[in-house]
Design a protein around this nucleic acid. Sequence first.
DNA 1: AGCCAGGACTGAG
DNA 2: CTCAGTCATGGC
Length: 225
Amino acid sequence: MQIVCEENLDKRLLELYKQLRSEHGNLRWWPADSPFEVALGAILTQATAWRNVEKAIDNLKAADAFTPEQIHAISQDELEKLLHPSGYFRMKAKKVRAFVEHIIERPMAVMFKLDVPDLRKELLSIYGVGPETADSIILYAAEKPSFVVDTYTYRLFSRLGWVAGNFHYERLRALFMDNLPHDVNLFNEYHALIVRHGARVCKKTPNCESCFLQSQCDFFQVGSG
DNA sequence: AGCCAGGACTGAG
DNA sequence: CTCAGTCATGGC
């Protein structure tokens, strides 16, 4: 993956943000009641629709298995059963267990005292926590500025012609980290807007009409700014 | 009926 | 390092 449009990226990113805001409003993410619930949701939503994640989280709450210690105490079979609706339930049971075992040793509140680079390294060392999950936990649970990108971000930016080639998480994240102020509220809202908008970005057709950014704002087209 | 959703890990080349 | 294969349910 290469960055096609290097010029004025800071201005372009802020203008895109304003466009998304005007289209979708102020979202204020993440749907969870605690940092631990954010982290669980981040793991469970890997390649999975959020509505299925909600079922699994409801199961955990209903089974009174919603603290790290409670989850650690139940059997693997039971954990798999509770996580079943979220899909990949065997994999996710392993991942959730690895995560709770880690934070029983090092509570999230302790980890969250680290700066973003060190916190990110520690989260990435946990089985089942990849770059997007780590950044989601840092941004939405620790409330520190680490930009979250995903396949929606890549798809949108490909349509805009700002990037080309295959999706590369770290390079796409660096595009935001290097060209935006490190503001938690900005990062929070920006990623939320991209995900909300993502449903309108056609997967296969390069000039999908449902992607308003293609048709309504010449500024976003490479070469016009 | 198929397609796909807010990815990550593994093994092979 | 790059990449295909794997993991799995539920809504549209």
